[in-house]
């Protein structure tokens, strides 16, 4: 990935020299042009095309914002309901992601999504204990976390 970024920067600088204009816009134009060249030659260059990873990072950020808004709506429902409608509880989530960096990202995502708050991590990094606002739909939230968050994180890191 680093190799591809270096090639992309070299193409951008070459574009500036060929155009004889040493300004920021021409650098950006060269950089975009470099992305196009890397995309067309992606079979000949070792490693995955790096810009697909940038796209998956953008997707992850958008997913995060969407979940944050949804969780606030759910939170307001819990706060202003006259009786306590929620039944809190703690459940364990088996983790597929392994490295520290991925787990940190996943816990932050979980803490800001509807009705879940990460409490602790087991010693061997295999289970995450989550406090849920409504324990009755635990299976649903496990399914959500497994399918949307872990998948999105793995797309970024692998």
């Amino acid at each position: 990935m680093a190799f591809q970024i270096v090639i992309n920067l070299i193409i951008a600088i070459m574009w500036m020299f060929l155009g004889e204009s040493y300004t920021t816009p021409s650098f950006i134009a060269g950089y975009l042009f470099g992305i196009l060249i890397l995309y067309l030659l992606r079979r000949l260059i070792p490693g995955k095309f790096y810009f697909s990873r940038v796209i998956s990072i953008i997707k992850l950020v958008l997913l995060f914002i969407k979940e944050l808004v949804l969780s606030n709506i759910a939170m307001i429902k819990y706060i202003y309901s006259p009786k306590q409608i929620a039944e809190p509880g703690v459940f364990a989530l088996p983790l597929d992601v392994k490295s520290d960096w991925e787990i940190t990202l996943l816990t932050s995502l979980i803490s800001l999504t509807p009705g879940t708050l990460s409490v602790a991590l087991s010693d061997d990094n295999s289970k995450l204990f989550i406090h849920a606002m409504n324990i009755d739909d635990v299976n649903e939230s496990i399914y959500d976390i497994k399918n949307s968050f872990e998948k999105a994180i793995m797309e970024v890191t692998r």
Binding site: N72, A86, G115, H131
Partner: peptide
């Protein structure tokens, strides 16, 4: 405290 934290972080 856990449910209080829910409110404090998200909202």
């Amino acid at each position: 405290i856990y449910t209080k934290l829910h409110a404090a972080t998200k909202a």
